[in-house]
Design a protein around this nucleic acid. Structure first.
Lengths: 353, 353
DNA sequence: CTGAAAGCGCTAACAT
DNA sequence: ATGTTAGCGCTTTCAG
C-alpha cells in the first residue's frame, strides 16, 4: 500500500523509545542497553526502515557516502577505478555516488563541487586533465583524494601507480627481446602520469646505452583512433621502429591495428606494449603485453584514506604510489629479421591505400 | 577564508528580504517584484550561493536531480546512455547522479532504491539482467523509466531501440551481399532486446527463403572473450557460415578476432555485423558494420519522460521505440569463393593450436 | 507582493 | 541508559 517510507520516528514509536535512543541503536553508538538495541534493530528491520542520508547529512553528521567525480565514464580506466572504489566503500559500510563532469560543461566547477559536497562526506577525484579543477577542489571543504594526478601544488593526497617504474619495466622487456629501435607513443603532456611514463621510456633507453631517437617519440591523445594514425606515421618512417611502447592500452590497440594495416604481423614484425592492463587487454587479439595498474588496490587505498580523513584521523597530505607490474602476453616478441620486415613493408606500401 | 557556504538565509539577510522571498526569487516563482528578484539574484551570485539540494529534497520539494542506476559502467553501452542522459538533464537544468549496482551486491535492492530516492526526483534504470530488480523498482515511489528492457509486466515506461527491425536490417544487408549461411551469435535470453534481435535474424532468413540452420545459432554472454570462443566453434563447423551477425558490438569484436585466428580475413573470407554502434565500432580495425542505436536520443527521451512525470504530467505507462539504423563499414562484404575460404581454413587447421 | 510559522528526518548537545 | 531541545537549509502552508 501507499504507506510512506518508515522514518526514525516510526521506529522509535514502535519500539517505545525516544528517537535519540533509536538513532543511537541504529548507529551502533554506545549508551544503549543490549535489549533496547536489539529491539530497535528488530523493529527497524521489520518495517524496512532505511536511514535517510540526506537528512543525516543535513543535520551535520557524516552520511557514509563518498562521491566520485570523473571526467569520463567510457574509459575502462575509470570504470575499473570506480568499481574498485565501490567495493572498498561497501566493505566499509559506505555507498558511492558518481558524478560525471563531461568535458563540455567544465563551466561550473563550483556548482558541481558544491553539489557533491552536499551529498557526500568525501570526494574521490579521477583526474580531469586540467588543473583548473584542482583549484576548485581546493575550495571544497571536504576530504579529497586525487587519483593518478599529483597536483603540482601537492594540495591533495593522491594515489597513483609508479608510472615511471612501469615504463622502465616495459621498455626493458622490449630491450631484452632484442629491440633497439623502440618508439614511444605518448598522450600529450597534460597528464602527469603520462609524462612519467615517457620519462621512464627515455631513461630505460639511456640506461641501456640505446641512442635517443627523437623521431621515435610521438604523441597522441590516448585514444585508439589517434594512436592508429600516429603509429602509422611511425611505421612509415624511413627507419621504422621494431617495437612501440604506448602510453595506454587503448593506444596500443590502435598501434596494433596500424601495424596490421601496414602488413606487419604482431608480434612477429612489430612488438607493442601498452600500459594500464584494462580488461580488454587480455581479451584483445593478440592479447596485449602491458603494464598493470593495480586498480582495485589504488581505489581501495584512496577510499580508505578518504574514510580516515572523514573519521578525523588527519593523515596530512600524503601520496601513495603502487608498484606497476609487467604482464607479458602475445603482443611482444623477439625482433624479426630486418629482411622480412622490409619486405612486408615494401609490399604493403606499393599497393597504396 | 573558512567561511561556510552561503545559505539562503545569508542571501535573504543581505538582500534585506525574508527567506521566503529570496527562495521565490531564486526559484523563479511568481509573487516577487522584478526589482526584488533582480536584487536577490545579484546578491546570490555575488556571494556564490548554491542551493542545497539535500535540504530542498528533505523539505519535500523536487530537487532537480535524476538518479541513474546501472549494473555496469564498463560497457560503452551504458556510458553512452549515461552521457546522453547527462546532457539532456543539464539542458533541462537538472543534474544527474549515478549509482552503480555491481553484480556482486544485488543483495540489497531495497536499500539502494531507498537511497536513490532520497537523493533524486526520478530514476533512470539501465537494467541489470534479472527482473528481480523490476520488483524492487515497483516499490520505489518515484518516477522510473527503464531503458532497453520492457519489463514483462509493462510496469514502467521504457525506451528502447527497434531491436527486431535492426536485426532485420543487418541480416538483409548480409543476404544482399550474397551470404546464405549466416550465423547468429546471441547473448543468452535474459535480455529482451537481445531476444528480439534473434527473432529478427530468424525472420529475415525465413523471409528470404533461406534455410533455418539451428547449428548456426549460438549464444554467448555479450562479452568479447566468450564471443571469441563461440565464434571459433562456429567457424570450425563442417559447413561454416560465411557471415556472423552478433547480438552486440563487443561480440562482433570477438568474432572478428576468432576469424583472424582461424586464418580468415574479414571481410574477404568472413563478414561480421554487430549491433549497438558503440564508439569503438568505428575505431576498430576493420571498422565494424553494425546496427546503430540512437543512444543520445534514447537517453534524452527517457530523461524527458522522467521530467514530465516529475512535473506531474502523468504520461501513463508508455513505451518509446526508436528506429535502428544500419551503418555499413568494413567488416562486411560479398561472399568470397568457397575455394579460397576452404583453403584458408584447411591451412589454419593443420598447424593446430 | 511579502513575511512568519512550522516541519521534512535526523543528530549533536544537554539534560535526567 | 534514556529523553528533551534545538537546529541543519529549505519549502510549504497560511497571513498580512
Amino acid at each position: 500500500m501507499t504507506k510512506e517510507n518508515p522514518t526514525l520516528a516510526d521506529v522509535a514509536r514502535l519500539a517505545g523509545v525516544s528517537q535519540m535512543t533509536a538513532s543511537r541503536a541504529l548507529n551502533g553508538r554506545s549508551g544503549v542497553s543490549r535489549e533496547t538495541r536489539d529491539e530497535v534493530l528488530r523493529i527497524a528491520s521489520d518495517i524496512g526502515y532505511v536511514v535517510n542520508r540526506t537528512a543525516q547529512k543535513l543535520s551535520g553528521r557524516r552520511n557514509g557516502i563518498i562521491g566520485i567525480i570523473t571526467p569520463t565514464l567510457d574509459t575502462q580506466f575509470s570504470s575499473e577505478l570506480i568499481l574498485g572504489a565501490g567495493r572498498a566503500a561497501r566493505a566499509a559500510g559506505c555507498e558511492v555516488l558518481i558524478y560525471t563532469m563531461s568535458d563540455e560543461d567544465r563551466r561550473m566547477h563550483h556548482d558541481v563541487l558544491g553539489l557533491v559536497r552536499q551529498f557526500s562526506d568525501a570526494l574521490l577525484a579521477i583526474l580531469p586533465r586540467d588543473s583548473l579543477w584542482l583549484d576548485s577542489l581546493a575550495k571544497a571543504k571536504l576530504p579529497v583524494v586525487v587519483i593518478d594526478q599529483r597536483g603540482t601544488m601537492h594540495r591533495f593526497p593522491s594515489v597513483s601507480v609508479d608510472n615511471y617504474g612501469g615504463a622502465l619495466l616495459a621498455v626493458e622487456h622490449l630491450i631484452e627481446l632484442g629491440h633497439t629501435r623502440i618508439a614511444f607513443l605518448g598522450g600529450g603532456d597534460s597528464i602527469e602520469g603520462v609524462r612519467d611514463r615517457q620519462r621512464g621510456y627515455v631513461d630505460a633507453l639511456a640506461r641501456h646505452g640505446l641512442p635517443h631517437a627523437p623521431e621515435l617519440i610521438a604523441s597522441g591523445d590516448l585514444s585508439q583512433m589517434t594512436a592508429f594514425e600516429v603509429a602509422s606515421r611511425l611505421i612509415n618512417l624511413a627507419d621504422p621502429p621494431t617495437a612501440i611502447f604506448t602510453a595506454n592500452d587503448q593506444s596500443a590497440f590502435g598501434a596494433i591495428a596500424a601495424a596490421r594495416e601496414a602488413g606487419l604481423r604482431v608480434p612477429d614484425d612489430m612488438s607493442v606494449v601498452g600500459f594500464d592492463d584494462i580488461p580488454m587487454a587480455e581479451q584483445f587479439h593478440p592479447a596485449l603485453t602491458t603494464v598493470r595498474q593495480p586498480f582495485q588496490q589504488m581505489a581501495s587505498s584512496a577510499v580508505n584514506t578518504l574514510l580516515a580523513q572523514v573519521a578525523g584521523n588527519d593523515a596530512s597530505v600524503q601520496r601513495v604510489t603502487f608498484a606497476a607490474e609487467l604482464v607479458v602476453r602475445d603482443s611482444s616478441g623477439t625482433v624479426t629479421s630486418v629482411r622480412r620486415r622490409s619486405a612486408a613493408l615494401q609490399k604493403a606500401r606499393k599497393p597504396g591505400r
